[in-house]
Amino acid sequence: MSQQDKSQYYVPAQSPWPIVGACAFFLIAFGAGHMVADLQDPQASQWGSLLLIAGVLVLFIMLAGWFKDQINESRSGLHNRQLGISYRQGMLWFIFSEIMFFAAFFGALLYLRVIAVPWLGGDSNNAMTHAVLWPDFVPQWPLTETPDGTKTQAMGYWGLPLINTVILLTSSVTIHFADLGLKKGNRKQLSSMLFITILLGIGFLFLQVEEYIHAYQDLGLTLSSGVYGNTFFMLTGFHGLHVTLGTLFLLVMWLRIVRGHFSSENHFAFLAASWYWHFVDIVWLCLFLFVYVL
């Protein structure tokens, strides 16, 4: 970093958006808390869900407003190089926190497969657990029959999951070409490659929904069919949520690119979106390996 950049710091002005965001989080948390607690009760009032929906709306208004201000400030040249580095570092740490969130679920999967299920079958010092509680239980993975007798079928990796893997890997390549296009100043390559990436993302989500329907209708594999179903749906579900957000993120980038935003020097938002997309792809590779193949 040059000395000139550091001689004048940039401090952003006050903004109403953060407090709007805090209100949105409050509405979402309070609304979701009531909605979930009222799930079992058909007579319950719906105000929990209404608060939740209101919260999500406020959240999107906040994001739109905040980013609009941010984009205007960036395009009027207020941001300096140091702020750009702060944004990049912040985004990398955010992705690290996301990795740790997935690590909690991958850790649970590992523990269940390697420790919990074998122990229920009498492994280690648990012979009595098996003999007294569930003598008929067969420890295996995928766990197609739970100790209390819930049966399900395992999801193979051939077919939809494999196609989805190919789709996401391809999308990682296309967004890389979009990135190269931006750096070379080839805007046609940038916008077309990004557009293909978005289509691949949507295609992935579409097939994921197909797969869920197949699991629920044909295989009897549901969220509540024991730890195999739990880990399957929680891991793929949170990943799918991240793909959805990533696709929206890329879509906003595409709209900005069509309007002529970003240059080969000034393109943090696009860079962040592409990092996020690569992260989502890598999570899927781990998923494919540990949830489907092994």
């Binding site: 649970a108 229920l120 509680l133 766990l143 739970t146 509540s224 024991g226 730890v227 739990n230």
Partner: peptide, 9 residues
């Protein structure tokens, strides 16, 4: 789900 429930594995 049964992450913490032995009956579901």
């Amino acid at each position: 789900t049964s992450f913490f429930d032995a009956a579901g594995g």
